[in-house]
Lab assay of single mutants.
Amino acid sequence: QGDIVVALYPYDGIHPDDLSFKKGEKMKVLEEHGEWWKAKSLLTKKEGFIPSNYVAKLN
């Protein structure tokens, strides 16, 4: 089961498979690959890669 993270900063995706998000948006982490994680937005239901240093895990 994936962790839920919250965006600390907004992110505008650079690549087509990036997931753009707004500050405060919550996402479910699907896979962790070093600095880039695959996640699904709980708001938009879209999936893509996010920079892990832009988010914090919720406990």
Results as ranks from 00 to 15, higher is better:
residue 1 Q to D: 12
residue 2 G to Q: 10
residue 2 G to C: 15
residue 3 D to R: 13
residue 5 V to A: 07
residue 5 V to M: 05
residue 5 V to N: 01
residue 6 V to R: 06
residue 7 A to W: 01
residue 8 L to D: 02
residue 9 Y to L: 09
residue 9 Y to K: 11
residue 9 Y to M: 11
residue 10 P to M: 08
residue 10 P to W: 08
residue 11 Y to W: 14
residue 11 Y to L: 03
residue 12 D to I: 15
residue 13 G to T: 05
residue 14 I to Y: 09
residue 14 I to T: 12
residue 16 P to D: 10
residue 19 L to Q: 00
residue 19 L to C: 03
residue 19 L to T: 02
residue 19 L to F: 04
residue 20 S to H: 06
residue 21 F to R: 00
residue 21 F to N: 01
residue 21 F to G: 00
residue 21 F to V: 05
residue 21 F to D: 00
residue 22 K to H: 08
residue 24 G to N: 06
residue 24 G to H: 06
residue 24 G to L: 03
residue 25 E to I: 01
residue 27 M to Q: 00
residue 27 M to S: 00
residue 28 K to N: 06
residue 29 V to N: 01
residue 29 V to K: 04
residue 30 L to M: 09
residue 30 L to E: 04
residue 31 E to K: 08
residue 31 E to T: 08
residue 32 E to K: 15
residue 32 E to M: 15
residue 32 E to I: 15
residue 32 E to F: 14
residue 33 H to F: 12
residue 34 G to E: 06
residue 34 G to A: 06
residue 35 E to N: 13
residue 35 E to D: 12
residue 37 W to V: 09
residue 38 K to G: 02
residue 38 K to C: 11
residue 39 A to N: 00
residue 39 A to H: 01
residue 39 A to W: 02
residue 39 A to Y: 02
residue 39 A to P: 00
residue 39 A to K: 01
residue 39 A to F: 01
residue 40 K to M: 14
residue 41 S to K: 05
residue 41 S to N: 05
residue 42 L to C: 14
residue 42 L to D: 03
residue 42 L to S: 03
residue 43 L to P: 02
residue 45 K to L: 15
residue 46 K to R: 12
residue 47 E to H: 07
residue 48 G to R: 00
residue 48 G to H: 01
residue 48 G to F: 01
residue 48 G to T: 00
residue 49 F to V: 07
residue 49 F to R: 13
residue 50 I to P: 01
residue 50 I to E: 01
residue 51 P to W: 04
residue 51 P to A: 02
residue 52 S to F: 09
residue 52 S to Q: 11
residue 53 N to I: 09
residue 54 Y to R: 08
residue 54 Y to P: 01
residue 55 V to C: 08
residue 55 V to Q: 01
residue 56 A to S: 11
residue 56 A to D: 06
residue 57 K to G: 07
residue 57 K to S: 09
residue 57 K to W: 13
residue 57 K to L: 11
residue 58 L to M: 11
residue 59 N to G: 13
residue 59 N to V: 13
residue 59 N to P: 13
